[in-house]
Write a protein that binds this DNA or RNA. Structure first.
Lengths: 341, 341
DNA sequence: TAGATTTGCTTAATCATTTAAGCAAATCTA
DNA sequence: TAGATTTGCTTAAATGATTAAGCAAATCTA
């Protein structure tokens, strides 16, 4: 099977490449190609299963039909889930997705944006690291469609899909308070990212309102130190013996924390209340089950890809849109003081 | 900032595009371009941050520097983890990755292979569905680099990276037997995929050897029915009251199973032994913790991408290679009859 | 029936590269 | 010093599409 091209097709049918191109792009009528010829060409193309070369097309039109997905870590279940969810809609619309992980490293994030630009991706979905404002602004100024998610860059006018971190943190803590926990500690990251700050503020609003103490443990935001999370939480609990509930601001802090509590035979729910940001199979199955703030992943993903598609259709003006979706607080055993059978 | 091209660079420097191209591709010496001019061009390019258009390059050379990753489901933690692991090495070698999920649907899998072909990806990493042999053979016959993983197509000569399903199933069941479980049921899928058959054979070898009964529950392989896994397992346990241990051939069957056991207050480890294929945070953290056969994800991913890179460097002959990596059996509480505190 | 309009295409430039082939000028060789 | 070789580039074709502009032939109009 020799390689086919529009030129080859045109030659065999003894017509010009322009004609073939117009027909294949559905412009036959517009270009007044006779119906008879149109049919003949389409039949031939169908029969020989000819597909125009995508690279040549992209080179000429400047469109690659590729979306660049830049997340913190594709291996993280949350981001993987988003990747899976956006894939369907993207493919349905003729787009493929190329992914990459920043590992929360601003230098890497900048590089990724650049390589994606070099690759001429048509649109960007980004979970920004800190200090990425300029690069994102540049994309937008160059007329490129961008949607941020999970974490926002509040100081630039860019589309964003995320959830209401402030309100859901507030509600989650209020729930713990309603279950009679009185010394609720927030275990979080020392990060200036908007979503982390919102979670902290939501926590503080709830504890201030009820005049209970604000107890906060901040972890340094560096993946290198992941290993001693357990030790640090242990130390923290020793230093703060009054703490009777833990509100984890991220999934992986919670996993380490739960591991520690189990090891120390501290009874989750009874001895200590637990609430976690981001749900996970683990929390549902765990005995006792773990209460969590669940992000509406499916809805967020849909909104994400649809917003991007919208931007890609209207590249003339960038009309930034924000979608802050509500989370749901899933109440399970870990935030109830009753004895668990 | 107007758009730059090799042509534009050549014009400003008053030289030909060929010269610029040779220099940018490191062929200056080979093409006898003077060192002085080479330096001048490189300096100019550096200063103006010029990057040659990737599309034009790809069109001309036929190389896109893109790898196509076709997995069952990118949202699955196992595949997401592989995606994350191969990303590093791929990017280090100048390759980007475009992913897609077959959802185990052969029709979709075929379509994906075709769209990836149309996109001129340079290499394929595939977890094949059933009935994909022809399509994969075609890729190889067209001189395209392919590596399969997780599940093999035994009847074609193609590179494969996976783990020793037979041996690890055998060892896992032997472990259960050693812990004095005597009626070990295999909970698996009704699939003709090699890895599923191997797991079953490993199970059977172990039970036949010890002359204990072979009890097998096969689920229909269709994602549509996922919802009633729990009910079916419940039914199965009622029909087979003698069963004292469950060996789950896949992760998600296990999750449903564990959920059921917890709900029915059946004490894992004590009342019933559990062993699972594919480890997961969940199993480590669960109380009691769940024994699992852990795939060597990092090593497999490395082997996977390196094998593909090897094929991409030697496109003249396809020299199929198989890597069957050993799994490790992680023994936890769920396969011990001792009372758990 | 002559001029205008429409029909149904084609011509050729363009997108931004790569690379085989070519060609003066400079240098070497004998 | 004439011929051969080397140096240091350039020319131009090719990759495979899209699309504005053009152009005969057919049809319409008055």
């Amino acid at each position: 099977m020799k390689k086919m091209s529009i030129k080859a097709v045109a030659e065999t049918l003894k017509i010009s490449t322009a004609t073939v191109s117009y027909i294949l792009n559905g412009k036959a009528k517009e270009k007044r190609i006779s119906e008879e010829l149109t049919k003949r060409v389409l039949a031939y193309v169908e029969e020989n299963n000819f597909k125009p070369n995508h690279l040549a097309k992209s080179l000429r039109t400047g469109k690659t039909n590729v979306i660049g997905l830049i997340v913190e870590d594709i291996a993280d279940p949350f981001f993987a889930s988003v990747a899976g969810n956006i894939e369907n809609i993207a493919y349905e619309n003729g787009y493929k997705i190329i992914y990459s992980s920043t590992k929360n490293n601003p230098v890497k994030a900048k590089e990724l944006i650049n390589t994606f630009r070099e690759r001429n991706v048509d649109g960007y979905i980004i979970t920004p690291t800190e200090g990425l404002e300029n690069d994102i602004t540049q994309l937008i100024n160059s007329g490129l469609p961008v949607v941020l998610f999970d974490r926002n860059c509040t100081d630039i006018d860019v589309s964003y899909v995320g959830m209401d971190n402030f309100d859901s943190a507030y509600k989650a803590v209020k729930h713990l308070i309603s279950k009679d926990y009185k010394n609720i500690a927030l275990i979080t990251l020392d990060s200036s990212q908007a979503q982390m700050i919102d979670r902290l503020l939501g926590y503080e609003k709830a504890v201030y309102e009820k005049r209970i103490p604000s107890i906060i443990k901040k972890f340094e935001y560096s993946s290198a130190k992941v290993n001693n999370i357990t030790e640090e939480i242990e130390q923290f609990l020793i230093e703060n013996p009054s703490v009777d509930a833990l509100f984890f601001a991220t999934n992986y802090l919670a996993i380490s924390g739960i591991e520690l509590l189990n090891r120390k035979r501290i009874k989750i729910g009874k001895d200590i209340g637990i609430m976690v940001f981001d749900d996970n199979d683990l929390f549902r199955i765990h005995q006792p089950s773990i209460s969590a703030v669940a992000q509406p992943i499916t809805e967020m993903s849909k909104q994400l890809i649809n917003t991007l598609l919208m931007h890609m259709e209207n590249t003339d003006k960038y009309d930034a849109q924000e979608y802050i979706m509500p989370a749901s607080i899933i109440i399970r055993d870990s935030s109830s003081k009753e004895e668990i059978a």
